[in-house]
Design a protein around this nucleic acid. Structure first.
Length: 557
RNA sequence: UGGGGUGUCGCCAAGUGGUAAGGCAACGGACUCUGACUCCGUCAUUCGUAGGUUCGAAUCCUACCACCCCAGCCA
């Protein structure tokens, strides 16, 4: 993390500094990251993870991991495992402080009893439709439930029987008694417990009643002695309820909820529902498809944890809804990858070049640095022979102005090797270029050619030594800036070219022992990562993480 | 037409009454055996709009406008 910039200040840090100055919480700062285990983590969650963990770190405090698991029907152990793995991969550590809201089900039940005894909660028999009717609308106040004035004893008895499974799902709910005329819908006697006969991934069949988010979250925070409960903007309206619950329960501390804007990035979707749909409908290759904005997907794509953390710091923390340009993410990615990736050569669209004045049995074993600026990475040895592959895009019979690669009769430098000159173009009957004939200048190895300058440098791989690899070229999943807001269905905007699989690519032989998740820069192309799932020693698979910046392509467009 | 929020360069974002940071992008240029990296330079007389207070306002006041969130027994 040494290359991470200092954590920039934000409004939340300012609030915390103020709290500290006023001696709140004995100078303690304790945050938590509270995912619901109902899906995989995505880059939006990374913002929250970074915020919570780095805020704790900044103020020498702690950050807990807590699974907000109050809705067993949607949650699954598969998700808790992947969430834990993703947070660790990002580089954060909750030490021994992993909790589940379900750890508190017993206490939550007791506190509910306390609320009932205080006359602050009641068992309601309204069904869902009736409840909706009684709730009123945004502009019309609601009506009191006919059960609102049930006696404490009766409420206690009914609530107990709800727990004991005497009723069917939906027969009763436990509601907080607040104000059916409140302009804040959340305060119109919100449901805090519902009957749901569902097996829970943590508590099994112990419960048939489950507490609601608003009631659970604040109490969980309090029980863990959280000082600052950071959440997203849509919970701003829930803060009065968060505070109300804790105000009734005097034995508990009272954390402060602070809301910030979630992260949005253009050319992608971020809602769990849509991501799940992409997976379920087979529009992508699973939650960890390299095109997905999930942390698992980004990991497989080749993103580094550092690049994601830096990005989160770069975008800042505010209360203003915003959409960050994906270019910022890519900048942060390239920035890290450039420093950390060893270089290699790989020809994506092979075109054979025969160097006619280079003897057939001759071989040069060239020593090239793994990184142009970082000697500590060491060197690699690359064989050079009479026949080499170059990329078809690096040769033009009719070059556009400014083209500085290989042309008929022209010269080009083979990266780290000799300068060659194209002598002849060999085509098939259809006029398709099959092969190039060239000559090389033996005096140009590690030296400038005499009496002329050669501007172009292209990458190459010896034909005889080349390693055949599969390369998966990924591009943005959507070809529209904001698929959510665009006309029609967001799936209509899936980029058909978001994945292009290339087989028979020619990699330099050193790639033979590349390990899963190992990252390289294929010079002049981009950064690539060995696929952690599908790559095998006899069938290497490289994923394009991100291309190099290409000002030439930009100009020629 | 209730309530809660937010509006500073194309995109993020500092700024908290003293005369608009920074990053991304873009555009010039230098360097270069990666058209990469790096480096240098340019890029808001103006802060949603209109008034007002003040010697002085993006910052304070008033009104208006735009956008986001809320009517799950989801989180």
């Amino acid at each position: 993390m040494s290359d991470s910039p200092a954590i920039p200040s934000n409004f939340i840090h300012q609030i915390i500094r103020e709290d500290l100055k006023n001696n709140k919480n004995d100078g303690r700062v304790h945050t938590r990251f509270p995912p619901e285990p109902n899906g995989y983590l995505h880059i939006g969650h990374a913002k929250s993870i970074c915020l919570n963990f780095s805020t704790a770190n900044e103020f020498k405090g702690l950050c807990n991991l807590r699974f907000d698991d109050t809705n067993p029907e949607k949650e699954d152990m598969e998700y808790v495992d992947s969430i834990r793995e993703s947070i660790r991969w990002l580089g954060f550590d909750w030490e021994d402080r992993q909790y589940y809201a379900s750890d508190y089900f017993d206490k939550l039940y007791e506190f509910a009893g306390e609320l009932i005894k205080q006359g602050k909660a009641y068992v309601c028999s309204l069904n869902q439709d009736q409840a909706r009717e009684y709730r009123g609308t945004l502009t019309k106040p609601g009506k009191n439930s006919p059960d609102r004035d049930r006696s404490v004893d009766e409420n206690l008895d009914l609530f107990n029987r709800m727990k004991d499974g005497e009723f069917d799902d939906g027969d009763y709910t436990l509601r907080a008694k607040i104000d059916m005329a409140s302009p804040n819908m959340n305060m119109r006697d919100p449901v805090i417990y519902r009957i749901r006969r569902a097996e829970h991934h943590q508590t099994g069949n112990k419960w048939c009643i489950y507490p609601m988010y608003d009631y659970t979250h604040c109490i969980s925070d309090a029980l863990e002695d959280i000082t600052h409960s950071l959440c997203t903007l849509e919970f701003e309206d829930h803060r009065p309820l968060y505070d109300w619950v804790l105000d009734q329960l005097e034995s508990l501390p009272h954390p402060r909820q602070i809301e910030f804007a979630r992260l949005n990035i253009n050319y992608t979707v971020m809602s769990k529902r849509k991501l799940k749909q992409l997976v379920d409908e087979g529009l992508v290759d699973g939650w960890d498809d390299p095109r997905m904005p999930t942390l698992d997907g980004m990991r497989r794509r080749g993103y580094t944890p550092v690049s994601i953390r830096n990005f989160c710091e770069m975008v800042g923390v505010t209360k203003a809804n915003s959409v960050v340009d994906v270019g910022m993410l890519e900048h942060s990615l390239r920035d890290d990858l450039d420093k950390t990736s060893p270089r290699a050569m790989c020809v994506l669209n092979p075109l054979k070049v025969v160097i006619e004045n280079y003897p057939e049995d001759k071989i040069d074993v060239l020593t090239l640095p793994k990184h142009p600026k970082d000697e500590s990475m060491g060197n690699r040895e690359i064989p050079f022979r009479r026949e080499v592959w170059i990329d078809r895009a690096d040769f033009e019979e009719v070059p556009p102005p400014g083209f500085k690669r290989l042309v008929t009769g022209g010269e080009v430098r083979l990266r780290g090797s000799y300068v060659i000159k194209c002598e002849e173009v060999i085509k098939d009957n259809n006029g398709e270029i099959m092969e190039l004939r060239a000559t090389y200048d033996a005096a140009t190895l590690g030296a400038r050619p005499e009496g002329r300058k050669v501007k172009g440098v292209i990458h190459w791989v010896s034909v005889q030594d080349a390693l055949d690899v599969e390369v998966r070229l990924y591009d943005r999943l959507f070809n529209c800036e904001n698929p959510d807001a665009a006309e029609g269905d967001y799936r209509d905007y899936i980029n058909p070219d978001s994945l292009v699989v290339k087989t028979g690519c020619k990699a330099e032989p050193t790639m033979a022992d590349a390990a899963h998740e190992e990252r390289f820069q294929f010079e002049r192309e981009g950064y690539f990562c060995v696929d952690r799932k599908n790559s095998a020693p006899d069938k290497p698979v490289f994923n394009l993480t991100v291309t190099l910046r290409d000002t030439w392509a930009k100009k020629s467009n």
